[in-house]
Design a protein around this nucleic acid. Sequence first.
DNA 1: AATCTATTCAATTAATATGTTGAATAGTTG
DNA 2: CAACTATTCAACATATTAATTGAATAGATT
Lengths: 219, 219
Amino acid sequence: MATSSLKEQVYQELARVTHAISNSKRMELIDVLSQKGFSVEELSKEIAMSVASTSQHLQVLKSAKLVETERQGNFIIYRITDDNVLKLVSAVRELGFRKFAEIERVIHDFKTDRNILESYTLDDLLLRARKEKVMLIDVRPEAEYDAGHIPNAVSIPLTQLKKRMNELPKDRKIIAYCRGPLCVMAIDAVKLLNQKKFNAIHMEDGYVEWKLRALENRN
Amino acid sequence: MATSSLKEQVYQELARVTHAISNSKRMELIDVLSQKGFSVEELSKEIAMSVASTSQHLQVLKSAKLVETERQGNFIIYRITDDNVLKLVSAVRELGFRKFAEIERVIHDFKTDRNILESYTLDDLLLRARKEKVMLIDVRPEAEYDAGHIPNAVSIPLTQLKKRMNELPKDRKIIAYCRGPLCVMAIDAVKLLNQKKFNAIHMEDGYVEWKLRALENRN
DNA sequence: AATCTATTCAATTAATATGTTGAATAGTTG
DNA sequence: CAACTATTCAACATATTAATTGAATAGATT
């Protein structure tokens, strides 16, 4: 049988996909790109790495067809190719979180470090939010909010939070969200707000989780 | 902010999961193990690699907690840890198949090489099979059938097919399935059957796909 | 057409992965 | 408890990967 050759070829192609996300920096790139398209320079800042190295990582992702490019003026904008990439990353995360006590511990340590005692999930938001009359704020950078956000959320980027606290109610619960479970902007926002006696709580799930949920319901 | 350190740690943990399946041989191992538990020696035969190397790959998978072990007499049996691993591999496959013309081409070449013109999917089976009164045969090794199979399927391992052709009807459509889209046993079976003037067709999806479908419906 | 600039390529070094052999180990069986 | 055997470990050679720096390129702007 010449079956082994077929198998080998197919498995090698599949391994190319997983190899592309088998590196922590590339994983981070995919996660950032899950929000919206970015230029190489922006991405290099986001993942704290030189532009040249970032570009190389992006080439790997591109050759695995996980991201694609489009030129916009002087910049080349990288984007996730399609929503199946989000599903893949979500599957990895689910497995990683479930399996690795280390991850939970690391996140837990980070939270207790900031006096974060409880947090919402997307389910909490969808089930309880209407009754309780909460205020939902999106603390990601404005450009990411513009690229897509959870309905009824108000954009208050973390960087502007201190100046814009007067826009927020003291008598209602404030729920802050950001990119997703690995993003700490919402945690930082809640810490800041609670110091000023707001009733704030952060939501673990972010825009990507909401988007995936919406995709599921469409089917 | 000490956020980068959290991110780095978390992404490194997640990358450990994907790194484990970023190698074609390990991908193959996971695929084989999706059927049932196997000993190291059996696996080494299945993926055509030395026992020592196979063991090393299995260590990588184990440290990523994608597989787990259990001793049975003299043998150590490796198993998939849980169904989320199947979901992950399924997500990878979906992405790989959709994105890579190479994979489709390779499989197509293989099929035309064997005069496979059409094939069933799991949906076809579930929708049409009842009306048409087909016979469903499982051509995987008997041990894998015993570990779990699609309801109403009859076990006729590929290796026994020639001898047991008398058990099969000439007046009904015969649908053959095996491990899944990357497995060619069903294709080989259909080729053999059609040479002997049976009305046989192969199903691309296999036991794993059926199992995943069943899991979805349970939720 | 010349300049400017974001991005990519090339060359390098250090680190890590792969697959092979053959020896060591641990657990079972007689 | 001795012998057996499946599995793992250790050591090696080879190959691949990661990150840096500095140069090259390609495309847009003036």
